[in-house]
Design a protein around this nucleic acid. Structure first.
Lengths: 361, 361
DNA sequence: GTTATCTTTGTGGGCGCTAACAGGCAAACC
DNA sequence: GGTTTGCCTGTTAGCGCCCACAAAGATAAC
């Protein structure tokens, strides 16, 4: 134990270790950081002292001395969407692999002010780079304003309009395959339940849907808008079933909305996939278990998270090679799609909803 | 390694601000920390300089000087369960409210070694306290071993057997109400699909189920075990339907498992709730949207997360008052429960399973 | 008028670590 | 032999901030 009269239990410092090993603090530093130019015997002595004293390096001191916190900040809306959670998980994993940390800053409201505030708090807490997991087109106004100069950033909901580098997956392969599948089944009236308008991710899926329809000579009916949630999917679904009697297939912005739509169908006595086909997006856990099992688009958001971190680490000069973006997606065929009914389901509404029965096929 | 060899623009320090305001760094410190004994005029001058130079305090220096990182660490299994995500969200929120940060350390495998390692990395990265969101009874061995002395800790999956303070919700009110409801409907054969055996949370739910059964003179059939996932719920459900022809109601360890069971029923042509009743636990988003809508137990995990942070902040002397635990739970009645069929569903198995299209891969 | 008390401000020391440089020493070279 | 080269180790000087204390002036108390 060193000389520590006042504090009850002070953690061992390099100086303590140095004293015990009979070397200078600098030599201890070299051993701790695994640097060359240390004699094998000396190194062994230092390692013994390290072990004996239970030394843990003081990260604050390292940060102060080096100017790097070894921490990446994440600005994210509350973790309500499947995607955000998975991406966060991937980031956590990748960051740990390199001995770095993750600092979270929550965002209740997706406004520019809130983002700016979160950023400030993150920088104040000490981060070297930031992942913006924010869904807002306000993002576009950000670079000019509150971004900290010299702070590497990636955006997880980029729309190409921002200067900021994006870390995302490519919805095209999966979504186009999904719609191609519907088309091949004979569907000609594809509707879209869109995500929130300020989300670039939502917007991209919507664009993909509308260009597919245009290119195949299909009607492009203005999509109903959701907030990604199942509840809003139910609402939108109800509205769609009430107003649009020609739709034969629905392409939802994500699985949560798709599942909400399925629920709305169940309430209205409309059968999936017999009367309407549905495809989702994300391949959430429940998609493979839902009744009926949901056909959807799978993309590896966890991998996106990992690469986002790698991109930042690259920007900081820690990693030599930058990761590739976007990460691809693929269509997952399950049970929620079928050829359109010979007669429109809209004409065969049963008188009463069947509600609780699982007999939906 | 070398992160900033050629940093063009060094952030303004207190010394810079002090120079501009014509005062000492100490006075700047007082203004920044909102301490008394600073003349109004001086304070104004300092504030101007602060603003002008875009000063941001260097958290590493503060940490080094004060010995506090203002950061709480979280050791969590990968974010696959609904509960972990919500709790994390609550923690993020609460921590931000107090100007602190959260540091995440992932856990691929719930072994003692991994926990210990995660803890080490967290402490190495600089945290003042830790939330153990780990589900393992190995936790019990931890206090004796790798816990850092003087580091406040709360456990989110406590089983009462650990010395460590627990931050959790009380499953009893909700689960007992759920089972009481089943009992009142006439169910006398309640089965349980349990969570993983090393999870104290799972174990508590299981105990609640078995004591309820015992107290009401019902059979206590050895539960099938799951890993919380829907996939394992499907497997367990399949097994249950195959082997146990007397069950009329199933109490699942969580919603994911419950929903998996519902899927297994759909595959086997067993109707929910006509043939079997099902209740889940957690009230996940899909519970209210599933077909049929899932009756379940709701508990506010987000609040648990918030209070976990508050507990730690209390331990650290930041907050005067400790939060209360556990957080209560409540039963949510929806559509997956009904009186038992007059004749056992097990006797009316349709000849062929209808979900044979389960080959989705 | 002198002493006690308060307010306002500054000074020195140190938190634990790393970077840059300075020696000392041994082997290798001419 | 002297010099170069390379390895090993220690020294010095901060990183930016907060703490304890001291100093100066202003005000109050006697």
């Amino acid at each position: 134990m060193g000389v520590n009269p006042h504090r009850v239990h002070r953690a061992a410092s390099m100086a303590d270790v140095a004293r015990r090993a009979g070397v200078s603090a600098q030599t201890v530093s070299r051993v701790v950081n695994d640097r060359p130019h240390v004699d094998a015997a000396t190194r062994a002595r230092v390692l013994e002292a390290l072990e004996h004293l239970g030394y843990r390096r003081n990260q604050a001191a390292v940060s102060l001395a080096t100017g790097s916190y070894r921490t990446i900040g994440v600005v994210a809306s509350t973790l309500t969407t499947h995607g955000a959670v998975l991406a966060l998980d991937g980031m956590t994993e990748e960051v740990a692999r390199h001995g770095w940390s993750l600092a979270l800053s929550p965002l209740r409201t997706p406004t520019l002010g809130a983002v700016s505030e979160a950023l400030t708090s993150l920088v104040g807490a000490g981060v070297d780079a930031v992942v913006l997991g924010v869904e807002t087109e306000l993002m576009r106004a950000l670079p000019a304003r509150s971004l900290v100069p010299g702070l590497p950033v990636v955006v997880m909901d980029g729309d190409g309009a921002t200067e900021l580098p994006a870390a995302d997956s490519d919805p095209a392969p999966g979504l186009l395959a999904a719609m191609g599948h519907l088309f091949d089944l004979g569907h000609r009236q594809l509707r879209h339940l869109a995500g929130p308008p300020d989300s670039a991710t939502a917007w991209r899926r919507r664009e993909l849907w509308s260009t597919f329809c245009t290119e195949h000579g299909l009607d492009v009916v203005e999509p109903l808008v959701t907030d990604w949630s199942s509840a809003s999917g139910v609402l939108a679904g109800r509205e769609l079933l009430r107003t649009d009697r020609t739709a034969t297939a629905v392409v939802a912005a994500n699985d949560q909305v798709a599942l909400g739509f399925v629920r709305a169908c169940a309430d209205a006595g409309v059968r999936v996939p017999d009367d309407v086909s549905v495809v989702g997006f994300d391949d959430v856990e429940y998609a493979d278990v839902a009744v009926p099992r949901l056909s959807t688009v799978r993309h590896d958001l966890r991998e996106v998270g990992r690469r986002a971190v790698r991109q930042l680490l690259h920007d900081l000069g820690v990693l030599p090679q930058a990761p590739e973006f976007p990460v691809p997606s693929e269509f997952v065929l399950r049970e929620s799609t079928a050829p359109p009914a010979p007669q429109q389901w809209s004409n065969s509404y049963p008188g009463t909803p069947r509600g609780s029965s699982s007999r939906s096929r």
